[in-house]
Amino acid sequence: MGIIKAENVTFEYIRRDEEGNVEGITTAVDNVSLDIEQGQFIAILGHNGSGKSTFAKHLNAILHPTEGTVWVNGMNTRHEEDVWDIRQTAGMVFQNPDNQIIGQIVEEDVGFGPENMGVPTKEIWERVEESLKAVGMYEFRKHSPNKLSGGQKQRVSIAGVLAMHPKCIVLDEPTAMLDPNGRKEVIRAIRALNDVEGMTVILITHYMEEIIYADKVFIMDKGKVAMEGTPREVFSQVEKLKKLRLDVPQVTLLAYELQKKGLPLPDGILTTEELVQELLDLKNGNLERR
């Protein structure tokens, strides 16, 4: 069993009208199973309302499955007595940076988690320092979060989770409210965590260009896992992605259009460099044949 394992997880909630009468039942997550190994970079994609955020909240024991089971590092999220260990193991970063920063000063916010866990003072300082350094925010440690840019705030939120020394970090649409610069900053920080520290990362997003470095991608639709595979495998199915209200990066789309015109390109091209190289090879190949 990997660090996180979900088995047939279903989550339903009851919709009520204004008087409190039951209107119906919505199945937000529908029979999802997945197994995540330590050190992997996992991306979960889906359009708004696909159930991806609801699922993510199960990994941190904020929500409990109606049916099925979630294990975090071997602990069942249903067990009340393990809940704090689970939250410590699988740290969670949310969408809106303003609504998850508690401290009035960057370093105080990063220290909040360890304080709650009862970590001795001296160690809190060590953890705060290393976490802020890991996301490149150490020089801002004395600043007020209100004066930071969106990307910087989100990196502080990530540091706040890192300071709890989790084994795995779940990011629930961390870039949805950021501008392109902020998005790049945050994604760079997340990738570094995975590459350098070997942290297991679960990134939930709807931006396709953010997942091209992931080891594995899950695509959710109507609460179900609609597609899964490596980014290359997933991106090679352009038509299916479009049906799922998702986009593909422009490069991939261009390669796909060129394929349709009869150019023999491989499936699922992900980066500009790749496409340029492939096209050059084609061109040179053509010349040689002549």
């Binding site: 949310f94 609504n99 998850q100 220290g111 909040f112 003072t121 709890m164």
Partner: peptide, 27 residues
């Protein structure tokens, strides 16, 4: 209200459970 809700969730996710057994970063 939305912010309050989000914040409560974020605090819980960071293991906040009241003042007992809490240490201080800046005692």
């Amino acid at each position: 209200f939305r912010r309050a809700n989000d914040l409560a969730m974020a605090m819980e996710a960071r293991c906040y459970r009241g003042g007992d057994n809490r240490t201080k970063m800046k005692p």
